[in-house]
Design a protein around this nucleic acid. Structure first.
Length: 311
DNA sequence: ACTATTTCCTGGATGC
DNA sequence: TGCATCCAGGAAATAG
């Protein structure tokens, strides 16, 4: 399940491989769940755009896109044609038609900017493939790249989401856990009656922390997941602030946690699952005190902790 | 304004 | 072996 460290790993891998490439055409599947923006809007925004950068925001992967004046000329021609999404593979010849006039180019010297936002949900994957490679079941989007490769979005459980941001930059909400300072961090939890575990999972507060890293952070900070956020001392929150950052940094360094079928952009597994101290260790001895690790459900999520080390 | 619960999804694991 | 049931969980929707 991709959380911040896994998404960071994937985004870095993709950045290495597709930055500078141009999206030639887009195919989107029939299933509607994976599409948060309208299919046509996604296709039109992506087609003929250059991938200027790939980065992570919370658990989202953000592709920064640029479209020059020439591309826009073709784009508007295509929009008028009202092609169905599944016909949106753009033919070679149309790509070569015409040249922008000098006037047209100077009038639009700044490239159009947009963003393609991908949330992987539970089982989403972005794979780089050759056109010959077999199309996997549950493939919901295929981007043909000018380099000749394809970028494919595969997601069996369809919890993942694709969207585009055009008029304004994408707002992922919340603070980046690796950037927030300790005072702001403490402020996030003031007056909150919700269990600290739930607060850590709330993306409007911190973006990117998921179930694994919430449990691991709370263990390192010695705080039980059910503790009401507002009752936690300043001192403990200072500890939690550093624990969250420590866990995330270590996980990123190891390429994330491969729990079920998570692999990075190169198909490589991460290794942080070997460092888990509580997550997935119900009944096993605490690595510090040997007390069996407990598992409880908090707001529908399994939560693991050591009843002796965490108060 | 908050907080808690339900819902969406499929595949793998489990049980009989 | 086959078939039904359960479980994983992020975030939006719904309810309180």
């Amino acid at each position: 399940m991709p959380e911040l460290p896994e998404v960071e790993t994937i985004a870095r891998g993709l950045a290495e491989r597709v930055t500078g490439d141009v999206i030639e055409s887009v195919w989107l599947g029939q299933k509607k769940e994976p599409l948060k923006s309208a299919a046509q809007e996604i296709a039109v925004t992506l087609e003929r755009s250059r991938i200027a950068a790939v980065r992570r925001m919370g658990k989202h992967i953000v592709f920064d896109l640029e479209k020059d004046g020439e591309a826009r000329t073709h784009l508007s021609a295509q929009s008028r044609n009202k092609h169905g999404v599944n016909d949106s593979h753009v033919s070679q010849k149309r790509r070569e038609v015409g040249h922008p006039t000098l006037a047209g180019r100077s009038a639009r010297a700044t490239p159009d900017r947009a963003q393609w936002i991908v949330h992987l949900g539970m089982t989403g994957r972005l794979q780089i493939a050759t056109p010959e490679a077999e199309i996997e079941k549950h493939t919901h989007a295929i981007l043909k790249l000018v380099s000749g490769r394809e970028l494919r979005f595969v997601d069996p459980r369809r919890f993942g989401r694709l969207s585009v941001a055009r008029s304004a930059d994408f707002d992922a909400g919340g603070f980046e856990p690796l950037e927030i300072d300790v005072d702001r961090f403490i402020e996030l939890f003031r007056g909150r009656k919700t269990p600290i575990k739930s607060a850590l999972l709330n993306q409007k507060l911190l973006r990117g922390v998921g179930n694994i890293y919430a449990d691991e952070s709370l263990f390192r900070a010695g705080i039980r997941p059910r503790r009401r956020a507002a009752t936690i001392t300043r001192e403990q929150l200072v500890k939690l602030h550093s624990s969250v950052k420590e866990v995330l940094r270590e996980a990123i360094a190891l390429g994330g946690s491969s729990i079920s079928d998570y692999v990075d952009a190169d198909g490589e597994e991460g290794f942080f699952q070997l460092q888990h101290r509580v997550y997935g260790r119900e009944g096993e001895p605490c690595l510090v005190c040997k007390t069996p690790i407990k598992r409880v459900v908090i707001s529908g999520r399994s939560s693991h902790y050591c009843p002796k080390c965490q108060k």
